[in-house]
Design a protein around this nucleic acid. Sequence first.
DNA 1: AATATAACCAACCGCCGACAT
DNA 2: CATGTCGGCGGTTGGTTATAT
Length: 381
Amino acid sequence: MMMMMMGGNNQFTTQNEGGEPLGNNGMNKSVVCSGREGGIPLKKGPWTGTEDAVLAEYVRSHGEGSWNAVQKNTGLARCGKSCRLRWVNHLRPNLKKGSFSPEEEKIIIELHAKMGNKWARMATQLPGRTDNEIKNYWNTRVKRRQRQGLPLYPPDVQPFYSQHQHRQRHSHPPSPIPSPPPTTAPNSCFSFQTPVVSLHTSNPMPLHPLHIPHRPPPQNFLYNPHSALTTPPLPLQSPNSASTPPPLPSPSASTPPHISPLHSPHNPPPFPTLPLINYPNTTTDDDFFHSNKRFKHDRLQSNNYSNNHLDATSSSFTLPFSPMQHYSNRMILDLPSSSRTTFNHHPHQDSGDFYPLKMDLRSNQINDWRKLRAAALCYNR
DNA sequence: AATATAACCAACCGCCGACAT
DNA sequence: CATGTCGGCGGTTGGTTATAT
């Protein structure tokens, strides 16, 4: 418990005697997962390692799907949606972590040019990557390119847009930036709107790296939830950008120009917009990325990661660490995964491959998360 | 050293379609 | 056929960290 208080972050799990969450974290808005199932108040916010272990063990035993059964059968105070998301984005095997490789980035750009914001579909083309990762990457890229006044797509990538828009999933504009309603402006400027396309690729979903059969409902193993605290939110920032680029020609003669919600003769964009493709003298992606300090840093981290971590494609290794054993011992640091602690972990001394207590640290503070995940999955295998 | 900004990331929300009842 | 449930998807939010000023 003392270790919970350590570190550069003052967020830590607090709970009362019954394990009822006292504090909240920033994610804790209105409850979408009904908030309470079977009398157990559902927890929100960052996952702890213990919760991860419970979920991973459950999926290992019973297979994917029936996510709502997780809470019922394990006592894990998470709604089915949350369990599924956690599994898909963090716990399932063969997930790649770390920065995207240049090749992956190129693929993402090409895929986005082809299919727009179809993150899940794009993820099927990038083994080990999740739609959330791709989405985050793209959104960051959009912001960065906009701020830099650079085109979203490199010159060799031509966005391909369909004849008509797909259904709009939401009534509100899907833009990360407030924008006027779409118009029929003939010229296509940089747009945050989803350029939905007619997909030529009907690639089937690749086989799941870990084929987990569905199994009948399980025996229960109960779990005691915990909670997290938070800090107040920060104000949003408005983007600033470079000069307005010249209008672009339609991507193809057979397809109508992409309609930008940011550009209209009647509703001029509230801020300069970017072109969808590059101009002759603009910086290429690679130029930009390699002049980007954060990018270099990420590459460095990525290299370190690949040097210090196991092969992402490997899903069949074992560790002395057993998450469930750890869980059952209840000798845990059940910090929320948003918590930071000065955990005495030395990446260059990992050769011992023993990870005490880490199950209950935030996932992104666990350097060898893949090992941890694999350990959870390989337990008792 | 302190503050501001950018980038990254995890997780939530609402909507939708498929399916069961 | 209507309704409810569940799982999936895309958009968005907000916390944390790294870097710049």
